[in-house]
Design a protein around this nucleic acid. Sequence first.
DNA 1: TAATAACCTCGCAA
DNA 2: ATTGCGAGGTTAT
Length: 309
Amino acid sequence: MTAVRVLTPITQPLDLASTLDSGQCFRWRPEADGAWTGVLGGDVVRLRAASQGLLIESAPTSPEQMVPRVMKYLRMDDDLPAIQRRLSVDPHMAQGVAAYPGLRLLRQDPWETLAAFILSSTSNIPRIRRTVELIAVSCGQAVTLDGMTRHTFPSPERLAQVGEAELRRLGCGFRAPYLEQAAQAVATGQLPLSGFRGVRYQEAAEALTALRGVGDKVADCVMLFSLDRLEAFPVDRWVQRAMQEWYGAGPLKRYDDARKWAWERFGQDAGYANQYLFWRRRQGQGAALHSQGLPLDPLAGPQSPKSAR
DNA sequence: TAATAACCTCGCAA
DNA sequence: ATTGCGAGGTTAT
C-alpha cells in the first residue's frame, strides 16, 4: 500500500507562503488551511507545514518518491541560516531576514522558468500567473490529485508547435513571438538549457540573452531561480528602488554597474539578498518605509502614497 | 554611449 | 460601469 501522504522531517527554515508567493514562481495556489498546491514536472503536489516537518501529497507519483524532488525544488540543500548570518551584517538585510525568515529560493525547471520570465516583461504578477496558467491548461497535460485537476507546463517541443497567433490569443501579447522562438531554440537543442547548471555565469548569460526578448534581467531570473546561479542579481524596478532608497545607490545607469554593486556587497549571496530586497520593497509598495524601525506589517492594508485627492 | 518610443493586454484604481 | 494609466523588460531608433 502506498501512503497518500508523507511527513518528511526538515531542519532548515521554511515558510511556504513567502517562498511560493514571492514572485519567483507563478503556479502555486494557497488553500484555505495553509496548504499550497502546485505542479512539479508531471505531478500535482500539495505541501503543508506540520509541526514535525513538511507534509507532502502528490499524484501520480507517490509522495515517498516525491520527497527528494520536493527537497531539491525547495533548495533544502542551501544552508539558509548561514546565508542569513552572513547577510545580516547589513542592517537592511537583517530586516529582510527578520520579516521573511523562512523565505527560500527555489530550484525550478529551467524551461518553465525561462518561459515565465519572458512573459514577465512589462507585466505584473497577476497577469503572468494568468497567462502561464492559460498556457498550461490549453497546451499541457491534465493531472489530478484527489479531485483537484491541474495541468503540466507544456514542453518546449509542444509549445514550439502552438504558433504565435494562439499564444497571442492566450494573452502573451508582444511576447508571443519571443516565447515561440525560445521554445524552438530549446526544442531543437540550439539552446542546451538542461546542460546549463554548473556552467560559468557569463557563458549561460550570453547564451540566454542571445534569445530575442531575453535581456540581462530575465536571464538573471532564469539563472537564479532555475540554474543554481545563486550569485545572480536580477535588477528590476523594485530592486532598483530598494537600492536607491535604502542604500543611496544613485540610479545606476548600466545594468552591469548594478550587478557589480551587488557582487561587491553581497558576493555569493547576492541572489538571496536580491530576493529580500525585491520582496520586502514590493510589499512596501509605493511607501518609502525607511526612517522607521522594523516595518513588520505585511498585513496592513495597501497604503496610498499618492495625494489623497 | 545615452535617451526615448513602441510593443500587447490586462489589472487596478478612480 | 467605464475609462485611463502603468506594468518585475527588451529592442529598435
